[in-house]
Simulated assay, not measured.
Amino acid sequence: MAAVWAPVVGHLLLLALLPSTSSSHMVFDLGGHVYRTGEFHVTLLIGDPAKPYFLHVDTASNLTSLDCNKGSKVPHPVYRPAPNKLVPRKHLLCNALHQDVGEPEKPHKTVCNYEIHYLDGSWSHGVLIHDKFTFPSGSTKPDIAFGCGYNQGGSHETVTGVDGMLGLGRGSIDLVSQLKNNKIITKNVFAHCLSSKGGGYLSIGDENVFSSPANWVPMAPSTDRNHNYYSPGPATLHLDTKPIGTTPMEVIFDSGSTYTHLPEGPHAQLVAALKASLSKSLKEVRDPSRLHPCWKGPGGFKSLDDLKKEFKSVMSLKFHSGATMIIPPEKYIIVTGYGNACFGMLGRTDIGDMCIIGDITMQDQLVIYDNEQGRLGWRSSQCDKKPKSKSATFSRI
């Protein structure tokens, strides 16, 4: 669940900035794909007059942000904040931000600057600002605090085609907390559904996500106050019935990562076990996607359905809470534009004993983040079909 001080402090901080509106919940269409775009994004209208921006849905970032570097190659004209949109260094919002992401190495004297380091190895430097957001109802235009990034890079995975990040992490000024504190939604609950066909949807404040059974686990407490990740706790990884590694890994749900990341040791063991399970009709090849390993079948691979003919092994994460996440081949293998099947789990030396679940493994699952009850849930779902709800406001941007 969000940091314990967030609901109280967030309410006091944001009441002056954000107008109160009638409560509702919202469902947004998502664009993008694991391959080739490498991201899933929502379109939000920001500013006055409102302008559209593509924001990469990121559950491991506490701060929504736009790329404000005038030299950046982004889909829309680069956002340029007016001077009166800058949050002062001594404002309580700035203190809350630094509680979420940590103090910058060199704090600015007058404006609220920040430095953020993400799970995938990327980083961003910027300043905190506020501006109007126009939501699907059209009548709801709250003033939302967000980041204006002027220097960023260093990513292990290159995400292009977006203007910034939609921060949905466990913070005090993440977007969902701000919406609840201003009574735009009644519950700090959201869910995303990423389709293997591309696109999907993001639901904010909708209690209808609880109407069907799901695998529920308690949110594990964060071990780092500056990185309040969504974690279902420790788990052991299996390939079919074979355990991979001997030490349980701390699992993180990170929709900001395209692929799933494993510590180098378990990753190497998993790759070896996977190779041993494959038929000799598959030939290991190099692919321009730079993923490794990759295989070419006798007739090539044209779709995810073709994977099932050659890849039979099912992975699973068995959580200490008793829940299990099933990971079939289509959630750990991608089919590239060159007709190859490539392993979509990356080995890392810099993540300790963490297992970072990225978009590839979240595909075709409704993943629910219930900050009210402090729990996470997931269930299989047709993510290319938006839910039907009489009370939801749908985005048609």
Score class of each variant (00 low, 15 high):
residue 3 A to L: 15
residue 5 W to L: 14
residue 7 P to F: 08
residue 14 L to K: 01
residue 20 S to I: 09
residue 30 L to I: 05
residue 43 T to H: 13
residue 43 T to C: 10
residue 46 I to L: 12
residue 48 D to M: 10
residue 57 V to W: 09
residue 60 A to Y: 08
residue 66 L to N: 04
residue 70 K to L: 13
residue 72 S to A: 15
residue 79 Y to F: 15
residue 79 Y to I: 06
residue 85 K to L: 12
residue 88 P to S: 08
residue 106 K to N: 06
residue 114 Y to I: 02
residue 127 V to W: 03
residue 128 L to H: 05
residue 131 D to I: 12
residue 137 S to V: 07
residue 141 K to R: 15
residue 142 P to A: 09
residue 146 F to L: 11
residue 155 S to W: 01
residue 158 T to H: 07
residue 162 V to E: 03
residue 163 D to I: 02
residue 166 L to P: 01
residue 176 V to F: 04
residue 181 N to M: 12
residue 182 N to C: 12
residue 198 G to P: 05
residue 199 G to L: 05
residue 202 L to I: 10
residue 223 T to R: 15
residue 232 P to M: 12
residue 233 G to T: 02
residue 238 H to C: 01
residue 240 D to C: 00
residue 242 K to S: 07
residue 243 P to E: 13
residue 245 G to M: 12
residue 246 T to R: 14
residue 247 T to R: 12
residue 250 E to C: 03
residue 266 P to L: 11
residue 268 A to L: 15
residue 275 K to L: 03
residue 282 L to I: 04
residue 282 L to N: 04
residue 283 K to I: 11
residue 286 R to H: 06
residue 289 S to D: 05
residue 289 S to M: 05
residue 293 P to C: 03
residue 293 P to M: 01
residue 296 K to I: 05
residue 309 K to T: 06
residue 312 K to I: 00
residue 326 I to P: 00
residue 330 E to K: 06
residue 331 K to M: 10
residue 346 L to C: 00
residue 347 G to E: 11
residue 351 I to S: 01
residue 353 D to C: 00
residue 354 M to E: 06
residue 362 M to L: 15
residue 384 D to P: 04
residue 384 D to Y: 13
residue 386 K to V: 08
residue 387 P to Y: 11
